[in-house]
Each structure stands twice: as C-alpha cells, then as structure tokens.
Design a protein around this nucleic acid. Structure first.
Lengths: 204, 204
DNA sequence: AACGGCGTTGCGGAAAACCACAACTTCCGC
DNA sequence: GCGGAAGTTGTGGTTTTCCGCAACGCCGTT
C-alpha cells in the first residue's frame, strides 16, 4: 500500500494531471492532492517517497504545509515548485531543510531527475533510521539502573568506581554490565560506544 | 593581522564603499576586493571570517570564485549578493554549500545579521577543526605498527587475538597498546573510540 | 499466597588487561 | 661505527574484568 511515491500537491487540475502523467510515464509512482489541507489530512508516518509542493495555493501554502509536516515529524524530502521566482522564499525554504526549489516552467527531464534524487534520499534516510530504531528499541529495554551504569561505563570508569558512585557492590555493577551488553547485543564497552556513536552522530 | 572579517568582493566602487562603511559602523571588521581574481590571489588559509560575493562581475563571477575557493579548501562561509533574482542560481549555490543568498536591494540590518551569523559559523567550525587537528597530529605521531594494533583494539579484539593476527607476542601488543593510549592522551579503549568518533562523525 | 521482574550481594575462579624492569635486533642517519 | 628510533620479547606480579552458582528483599500482578 505505501510504496514510495512522489506526492504532488497542487491546486491546478491541469498541472496535477500533467505531473501525474509525466511521472507515471517515467515509471515513477505518483499520487496527487488538490490542496495542502487534504494532503496533510492523508499524511501518515508510513508514507514514503518525496513531496512536490506548489508554493502558491488557495488556503494553506506549500511552505506552510512544509512547516506543518516537519512539525509532525514527517521526514520526506520536499521539492518546491513555484511560478514566480522569489529568491528569499527559495533561500528560506532550503535553509529550513527543503530538498530543492524549482521554477515553473520546468524542464521535464530535470524535474524527474530531481524527484528521483529525492526519492533516493528518502530511501537512504529511512534505512539509516531503521537501524537506529533497532538500537533505540534495545535501549528502551534497559532498566533505569542499567542506564545509570551504562552512562558510567561509557565514561570509561572502572566497575569499582561505578560501584562507589552508585553505592552498590562491584558484583552488582558487573551484573548490570553484562545485562547491558546482552540486551544491546554487543560484547564489549568498545562495541557499545561505537554503536551509540554510529546511531546518533554528533551534530551542531 | 588575520582577525576575522567580512571579505567583500564587488566590482562596483560605490557598493564596496557603502558595504565597508556599513560593516565598520556596526563594529564588524571588513575588507574589500574589486575583483574575484584579486581576492583569490590574496586569499590564504589563515584568512578568517566570511565572504560576501557579488554574483555578477566582469571576469570571474562570484559563484566561480566560490568554486575555486572550495577547491582550494577554503572553509569560510559564503554569502552571495545578487541584483537579479535568479532562483536556479540561488538554489544551486545553496546546495553547493553557500551560506546565504541575498537579493539587492538589501535591508542593511538583515544583511548585517546574516553576516554576523556567518562569522559565528566560521568561528565555531574553526574551533571544531582545531580540536580535530590536535587529534590528527597525535594520530600522525603513531608508528605504522601502532596503527595496526589500534585498528584491532578498536574492533574490540583481545590482545591475544591481535597478537595472533600480527604474529607477535602478547606482550608486544600490550606495549603498543599503552604507547597508543599515551600518545593519544586517553586512558582506555572506550575513551579512544569516543575521541575518534567525535573528531570524524560519520557522514553519508 | 504464589509468581516474576528487578536490584541486590557473596564466593570463587578463569581470563584478560596493565605495568615496571630488563634486554635483544634491525634499520637509518651522522 | 655510534646513537637513536622502532619493534620485539620475557619475567613476575597486581588489578580488573567476566562468569557461573546461589541467594535475599521489594513490589506489583494474578
């Protein structure tokens, strides 16, 4: 049901149809909405692919929809389509994380290329999140105490020190430690740190 | 000598002077060049701050200068100034890593704000590179053999296994190991992995 | 009350890491 | 050839980690 697709949002019937035809003729799955509101209502987390949004529409505008979706945690790449070359708008959109910003009239081949890029971006992002999600689930299965211990293990502290800090016996720390490793599927503190750093790379 | 500054490149004398005056009146250090070529010739790695480039200039254009500087490894954030609202150009510039793209006529306050942002970005980037450079220098001081050992330590292998793989005695591995820790200023394998991951975050 | 999850602890031992002291070889440049 | 850097190894001993086995108390559910 939720196969990756380019999700077109445009109030102009003619343009929607033309875009649908264009993408389908190129073998790209496409769906269309005639308003930002209807798309927003239909959007679920399971939706995959990318968005192709008209900037200027009656009611909710493209950028507005973009903000709403972002606020909702939607991670699909967004490409804007605009008829009037508004540079500040384009700059603002890209700085907010839009994937692309294309002026009408557009070149069919170029548009399709950009969309395919965006679809690929979504796929790779999604793959990255998958593996993160797996780790997150495992992290969630840790008990509070185990997390306290893990924190200190990651700080490179000796079990002895950790025991002192938490006011418990060394043996207890050892038990927690091995439970942590078991639950997270790693075999050493080194692997642990690497897993965590891979999952949540430091970003400014 | 190389205090952070906004480096203005514009062929129009009047605009250059106006910009210089604007920034200096706001307490922002500024320097100016009348062509991309002269700026390129004067640019050194030690130069700090940000660039404010006119897009359209006789000879080398702003975007062209941007490319050249990027190729040379210059890391200063770049803001483009353009008189003619060219959306595809703006999109291309931002996607290539430009910091901002502003249309003339610009609002003085806004321009200054953007420049200040860019200067801050440069400062923080530079700080990040500093610490990376420190680590890189230490890594460089490792001998080839030590690097071989480090690799395997980071893989979470036992000294015993490493010794087998390298065909040397366990004791030798221990010596290398402690040398590595000493040279890199860490006290455990855990700290080591964290240092390395902090310095070079994984990016797609 | 019985059961299970969680946190706790002790004992005892195997494995691994860590360390100071001491020494040998090779290779390279002065 | 001498001095030094790098790589290598051994001895002996301390410290830490890692584990299986066994057990107790608390708490919430059934």
């Amino acid at each position: 049901m939720n196969t990756p697709a380019v999700h077109i949002v445009d109030d102009d019937d003619a343009i929607r149809d033309a875009l649908l035809w264009l993408f389908q003729s190129r073998g790209v799955n496409a769906r269309a909405w005639n308003s930002a509101e209807s798309m927003l209502a239909a959007c679920t987390d399971a939706m995959r692919g990318c968005l192709l949004l008209d900037v200027r529409m009656p009611g909710m505008s493209g950028p507005e929809l973009f903000d709403r979706l972002a606020g909702r945690g939607c991670a699909m790449p967004v490409i804007f389509l605009t008829g009037h070359g508004d540079v500040p708008l384009a700059v603002a959109a890209l700085k907010k994380g839009a994937c692309d910003f294309i002026e009408k009239p557009f070149n069919d081949n170029e548009l399709v290329d950009r969309v395919i890029e965006a679809l690929a971006l979504d796929a790779s992002r999604r793959a990255a999140r998958e593996s993160e999600a797996g780790l997150a689930a495992r992290l969630a299965s840790l008990t509070a105490r185990e997390r306290e211990v893990m924190e200190r293990v990651l700080a490179g502290k000796y079990n002895k020190v950790i025991a002192d800090e938490l006011g418990i016996a060394m043996r207890t720390v050892e038990v927690h430690r091995s439970r942590i490793f078991e639950k997270l599927g790693v075999r050493s503190a080194v692997e642990l740190t690497q897993r965590l750093h891979r999952a949540s790379p430091p970003r400014a």
